[in-house]
């Protein structure tokens, strides 16, 4: 990445021109908060069925357990989410160093960099489940979708992968990944759905 730092090309956020920091909807205390996540690194890791060494490599390199079912393992800097049979999504909170990390993973899995393929955001707040229920055909109740659960599904006809991180003071927190090309349509739905609860929007 050292070379890239010299580049005069500036990356553009997947949310650029779509999401602005501020507040939408009714006045009052925000029922929902959305925070766009820029600069995250994402990559798909795929192994042949029964391949054993990705789990140990993941543990060694980022200190996380490779989830066997639809769960996500998280640290403060990295995460790895189940994303289908023999298929995971590796991510880092910052892109710096991610290319090198992918290089070391490539001995253990087929690696495809998806850092620019997803628009990511965190949503939380006391009314967040009510907002997501306007597009999610999966059950978000704690008994079904606990902390650490992930799902590949669609929100309002937009393919997403999302997971639930540790709860915050206002209840559950979800991180949602949207195909970059559909960030605008996703946001149009999310903003319309959240407006009745008052939504605060922060940009990373």
């Amino acid at each position: 990445m050292a070379e890239q730092a010299k580049s005069i090309w500036r990356p553009r956020s997947a949310w650029a021109g779509i999401v602005e920091a501020g507040q939408i909807g009714v006045d009052g205390k925000p029922g929902v908060t959305a925070l766009t996540l820029d600069d995250m690194g994402f990559a798909t890791l795929i192994v042949p069925p029964g391949s054993p060494d990705l789990a140990s490599a993941t543990k060694r390199m980022i200190g996380l357990d490779l989830p066997k079912k639809a769960f996500v393992s998280l640290s403060s800097t990295h995460g790895v989410a189940w994303a289908g049979a023999n298929h995971w999504l590796l991510f880092a909170r910052q892109q710096a160093g991610f290319v090198d990390l992918l290089q070391s993973f490539s001995d253990h899995a087929a690696v495809s960099d998806q850092s620019h393929a997803r628009a990511a955001l965190t949503v939380s707040g006391p009314r967040v489940r009510e907002v997501l229920a306007k597009g999610a055909m999966v059950d978000l109740h704690s008994s079904v979708f606990p902390v650490g659960a992930t799902a590949l599904t669609s929100f309002a006809h937009v393919h997403v992968q999302f997971w639930r991180t540790d709860d915050g003071p206002d209840g559950p927190i979800f991180e949602i990944l949207v195909p970059r090309s559909m960030a605008g349509s996703f946001w149009s739905w999310f903003a319309a759905s959240a407006a009745e609860f008052n939504c605060r929007i922060d940009r990373d």
Binding site: R12, A16, G17, H116, K134, A156, H157, V158, P179, R180, S181, M182, G184, S185, F186, S188, W189, A192, S193
Partner: peptide
């Protein structure tokens, strides 16, 4: 239909070069 009418009838995909 809910939200999905008019320009939101279905998701629209925009290329990264759209702007």
């Amino acid at each position: 239909a809910g939200h999905h009418r008019g320009k939101d009838f279905r998701p629209v995909r925009l290329a990264p070069t759209h702007d």
